[in-house]
Each structure stands twice: as C-alpha cells, then as structure tokens.
C-alpha cells in the first residue's frame, strides 16, 4: 500500500522553482476551460429550470431552457412540505461539529502517528488505513442498535458522533505532517522546554493549517451530503438537509419541480461557502496536495 503512495525517489523541496514553466493560456485553453466550467454548473442550472416548470412543461419538445418566477413558488412549497430552514440550521450544526471534531482529532492522531514513536503505532495505523476500504452501508444496523440503546434516536448527536472521526483524515494528516513538519522544528521547541501540548499548538498546528483546511472542506462537504445514515437515525421532524430533501414531494404524486427547487435550496449554502471562501479553500487544496 505504501509503495503505491510513496515515490521511489525521495524528493527535495529546496532548490527548485516549481511551476515556473507554465505558459500563458491561449484562446484554445480558455475555450476549453469555459466549456468545462459550463459543464460543471449545467446540472445545477438545469435543476433551476426544472424547478420552474411543471412535469408537463418540462416534457415539451423543445424543452424550456430558462427558469422563471415559478421557481420561488416551488421553493416556498418545498419549505411548506419540509422544515428546510431548520434542516439547514441542523446541517450547519452537524457538518460543522463533524468538521471541527474530525480536523481536531485527526490532526492530533495524525501528529502522533507522524512524529511520536510509541509501541504499536505501526499496527494501529495499518488498522486505520484498512478500514478506509470497508463499505459503510452495513454498519447502520449495529450502529442504530447502539444509538437506540443510548436513547439518541432523532437527535443530532446520533449523526454527529459516529462520523466525528475519519480514517481518511488520520491518514491524510499523518502523511502531510511527516514531511511538512521538520523534526528540527520540534527539537527546537523541545530544547526551549516546551511540553508536548505546547509544541502541538504552537508548532504543529500552524504547520498543519493548509492540510487542516483541505480536510475541513472535504469533511464538511461529505457530511453535508451524507444521507444514508441520517435518514435512518433522524425523522422528518428534526432533519438534516438531505433528510428533508428526501421527504420532499410527499404524496402519491412526486412533484418534481418542488423536489428540484428544494434540492437546489439545500445545495445553496455550500455554493455560498464556495463563492465566499473559494480562494482560501482552493488555495488550501493546493498547499495540501503538494505535500500530502
């Protein structure tokens, strides 16, 4: 497994000028990028269109290509059918807590695996990586039995706690910190008489920040979009966004326009985060990926 991930030749990061040979983009490059960008947002745009038209209208030939004000009617219909406002608040709480927990615990553990030597660390890390490969769907039954035992059914901690850590996160942070965090820096801290905790917060965390940003974003998106477990652990009375969306269009009749409108509304907060923090997030990925 490591052989896959580790290049045969050790690399040095000093004495190079990375990325200096990138040429200026020509018209062809811009055209292709614009095309890729359009493809990226098209399905979202299409859900805006579909959210503005009835089934009959959308099935017409040629189909409509523009959204209209009906969209807002459908949004409010969606909000009547499911407590989307509450759902968004819940999802922010859930995804936010999971993100904070994952980043914190995985950074702690990643640091320990990367830099602290203790008996059995190799075996433990192998265990962590091994579980990345386990299909998760089946875990819901025993998980639900535990949640029921704890009387957590329908409450948010039922969806927060089981996903509070991730094996991927530990592995990711560990891989990042092994190189990004020079032992000399830790030694210097040690010589100054700093405790391990002090070293963690004053030396490790600042160095780990780009990777933490990446992990935070991935975790937030995954948590936001998770529906398999929440749909079982929560009910429509206290839903996350994905649970609420799954409950849209109630009745024998699926009102697709309402479902589409609600779905788009549920994606909106994430898009907003992207629009506002795009630079930081993408920058974080860059920094993380270079080292991680």
């Amino acid at each position: 497994m490591t052989a896959v991930l580790t290049p045969p030749t050790p690399a040095r990061t000093s004495g190079r000028r990375p990325g200096t040979k990138a040429g200026r983009a020509g018209p062809v490059a811009y055209t292709l990028l614009v095309l890729a960008g359009l493809l990226s947002v098209f399905p979202l745009y299409w859900s805006l269109v579909a959210g503005s038209h009835t089934n009959a209208e959308i099935a017409a030939t040629p189909p409509p290509f523009l959204p209209n004000a009906t969209f807002f009617e459908n949004v409010s219909a969606a909000m009547d059918q499911a407590p989307l406002g509450l759902a968004i608040v819940n999802s922010v709480v859930v995804a936010g807590s999971i993100t904070v927990g994952t980043v914190l615990f995985c950074t702690l553990a990643g640091f320990a695996f990367a830099k602290l030597r203790f008996r059995g660390s190799g075996g433990l890390l192998a265990l962590v990586v091994g579980t990345m490969m386990v299909p998760t769907q089946l875990a819901v039954i025993p998980l639900f039995m535990m949640i029921a035992e704890l009387k957590w059914v329908d409450s948010l901690q039922a969806v927060v706690l089981p996903t509070l850590v991730s094996a991927f996160g530990v592995f990711f942070m560990r891989q990042y910190l092994v190189t990004a965090l020079p032992d000399e820096l830790l030694e210097a801290g040690r010589v100054d008489g700093a405790s391990t905790h002090r070293i963690f917060f004053s030396i490790v965390v600042p160095v780990a920040r780009p990777a933490m940003a990446v992990l935070a974003m991935l975790t937030f998106l995954t948590a936001w979009n998770e529906f398999f477990w929440p749909i079982i652990a929560l009910t429509a009375a206290n839903p996350t966004v994905q649970v609420a969306i799954a409950n849209l269009g109630s009745g024998y009749v699926p009102q697709r326009a309402v479902i589409m409108a609600g779905t788009l509304l549920g994606t909106l907060p994430v898009l907003l985060v992207f629009a506002l923090l795009g630079k930081q997030i993408v920058g974080g990925i860059m920094a993380g990926a270079v080292k991680g």
Binding site: S97, V100, G101, D154, S155, L156, Q157, N238
Partner: peptide, 18 residues
Amino acid sequence: AGATLALALLTTGCGGSD
C-alpha cells in the same frame, strides 16, 4: 476557542427534541 465552539455545537445538538 475552536474546541469550545465544537463543544457548544455538540451540546446544541444534544438539546433537541425530546
């Protein structure tokens, strides 16, 4: 502050619907 926030969020989560 980050840790406190996490805790606060968790407790908010625990409030909920009984």
